[in-house]
């Protein structure tokens, strides 16, 4: 089932700025979905539309199969904004209890969940302190705690680690991996590509309000080529391969032939077949997310 679904979703702000153009997207239950794009690509606009903070100029958005205008869809949702703005007059514990009560949790459950999350996010010591006295990092962690207060089925995170130090970032990643293991759906916007790469099942790349690419990392880097591993090569084969663009590395009893494109890969395999060389294995060459991201962005810039 699609937990998030958008159909030709578009948004034009007053003044004529087109922030999003006909976005068609599906995020399935249990997947961690990375939503990438440079500044001004339309990521935050998409999140605002999904949370019904702004109205679409065209198309529609659905959460759990229901229109986003239905407040009940947010019962199973957790949201962490990029810049966490919390009610500064509460203590950390009281704030979590307040949000939990908005979600309809019983008073006893509110206190229990608040206590658990404060402990888990390392805020137990500061639980009774006023939020106005919290540091940026503490606010971000408290923000994450409020997003998890109802143990949501869907978590929408907008730049979740932007204000965190490396240790807290690792803790956040662990939390995401834990959520993934528990079958929760996570929709995460981030500029930190390595972070997205390490946790996301699928990614979408957005630029100037348009969806450029979407798929798993394997799908997005599939056309890159491969590395062919063979045994010791006779001189005739080495000579034949040197006439191609393939890069040959001879190492002991094993040789590797790196092909940078699908067409080159097919050509080299043909050469090897013709010369009767036994192929041990073919390893698809994966592009890193960074390469995929910049590939999509640069292609647009060139165009």
């Amino acid at each position: 089932m699609a937990v998030i679904r958008t159909e030709t979703l578009g948004k034009t702000y007053r003044g004529g700025t087109v922030a999003l153009r006909g976005l068609d997207l599906e995020v399935h239950a249990g997947e961690v979905f990375g939503f990438l794009g440079p500044n001004g690509a339309g990521k935050s606009t998409t999140i605002r539309l999904l949370l019904n903070f702004i109205r679409p100029s065209g198309g529609a958005a659905y959460l759990f199969g229901q229109p986003v205008t239905c407040a009940q869809t947010r019962k199973e949702l957790g949201y962490l904004p990029e810049s966490v703005q919390l009610h500064s007059y509460y203590s950390g514990r009281r704030l979590l209890e307040f949000y939990a009560s908005l979600l309809g949790l019983e008073r006893a459950d509110c206190s229990r969940r608040a206590g658990e999350l404060l402990e888990r996010l390392g805020l137990r010591e500061a639980a009774e302190r006023r939020i106005s006295q919290y540091s940026k990092g503490m606010l971000q962690r408290l923000g994450m705690a409020q997003a998890l207060i109802n143990d949501p089925e869907l978590l929408i995170l907008d730049e979740p680690t932007s204000n965190l130090d490396p240790v807290a970032r690792r803790d956040f990643r662990d939390i995401l991996l834990d959520l993934k293991a528990r079958g929760k759906t996570v929709f995460v916007c981030s500029h930190i590509l390595s972070e997205v790469e390490s946790v996301c099942d699928r990614v979408a790349i957005l630029q100037k309000g348009e969806l450029k690419r979407v798929g798993t990392l394997e799908e997005l880097s599939g056309a890159r080529g491969a590395r062919i591993v063979v045994g010791r090569l006779p001189a005739a084969v080495i000579e034949a391969l040197s006439a191609t663009d393939a890069r040959l590395t001879l190492k002991g009893r094993e040789s590797t032939i790196v092909c940078d494109s699908q067409s080159l890969l097919e050509h080299v395999r043909q050469v090897l077949d013709d010369l009767g060389v036994d192929v041990k294995r073919v390893e698809p060459q994966m592009q890193s997310l960074e390469e995929i991201f910049f590939g999509a962005i640069d292609r647009e810039r060139t165009a």
């Binding site: 949370l51 903070f53 947010r74 949702l77 904004p81 703005q85 949000y99 908005l102």
Partner: peptide, 17 residues
């Protein structure tokens, strides 16, 4: 201005409420 409205409306609270 503070952005706290988004934290509340991200919960099952309608705009009317």
């Amino acid at each position: 201005r503070r952005g706290t409205i988004h934290m509340i409306l991200a919960k099952p609270v309608t705009r009317s409420q």
